[in-house]
Design a protein around this nucleic acid. Structure first.
Lengths: 153, 153
DNA sequence: CTATTTGCAAATAATTTGCAGTGCG
DNA sequence: CGCACTGCAAATTATTTGCAAATAG
């Protein structure tokens, strides 16, 4: 239901409209870069986006990828996530969700939970600032890394 | 109670013991670097740690700071955190806690909540891997940035 | 003593920026 | 047609590494 074929078109519309609002141009590079992030359910870093986008549009340069990703972040169309070690990753999932992160290999995936979405923050948080959103980060070992362990032992 | 003068000594003991276990040497640089991270309740990046440690031990180099921080992370004495944009930060708070992060300036502070600590993860998480820990990340605007807004408007 | 560790400086990796040509609106 | 946008290459910033001298155990 969620990943219907024309969900893509829908997202493209959202991008076009957001650009209009912000008064910036809709270029094919921006469309491709946004689509690439929106298409994936992992959370690619700039280099991964660049590599994939290049397959369809070989002239796209790394700096355009960066500029576009940060711009999409500013527009609120994607979200930059803190990296594990050195790299920033980008997340196009704007619905309420949480993250599972493998501490071994960096594998990162979304998961959902109504219960977790309902959590209430303690009042001590209000003393730190105005909360806008919250999400859980679960750290652990992903299936793939766990099976390497089995093999190794 | 928590920040008593000899909580420092206690931490030092913990470091010394951890080094013994791991078979690595206890050097003054390692002590200083660990103390610096452990002393603070913000989550400094490598450059900040370096700057502070230098005041007491001017010869310490940036690369020693990095090497030591990652080693402490390996030993489980501190934890590396994904930054907002480019820099890794380090957290010496090993007790169960959560983070408030200012999306504007990067200000990051811990907060605690028994209720949040008790949250249960949905079974979908198990499909992704073995969870080892979880914490909430609250994003928002910190007091300082909010007051800049007031001034600016 | 002797293997580890440090500090230095140079090497990488990640990300940003200045500029001239190109294309969206 | 004009200004915003791209691609290139060079600049920055963040982090890592090789090696000789220093030092913990």
């Amino acid at each position: 239901m969620n990943s219907g074929r024309n969900a893509i078109d829908e997202r493209r519309e959202r991008l076009v409209e957001a650009c209009r609002r912000a008064g910036i141009k809709v270029t094919p590079q921006r469309l491709e870069i946004f689509e690439e992030v929106a298409r994936r359910d992992d959370h690619p870093d700039a280099a991964q986006v660049h590599r994939e986008v290049r397959r369809r549009m070989p002239s796209v340069s790394m700096d355009t990828v960066y500029r576009t990703l940060w711009m999409l972040d500013d527009l609120g169309l994607i979200r930059a996530m803190g990296p594990g070690r050195g790299k920033t990753r980008f997340d196009a999932n704007l619905s309420r969700h949480h993250h599972f992160v493998c501490v071994r290999c960096g594998f990162t995936r979304d998961f959902y939970s109504d219960e977790l979405d309902r959590l209430t923050l303690p009042k001590t948080v209000a003393a730190l600032g105005r909360a806008e959103s919250s999400q859980i980060e679960v750290r652990g070992i992903c299936k793939a890394c766990a099976s390497h362990d089995d093999a190794g032992t």
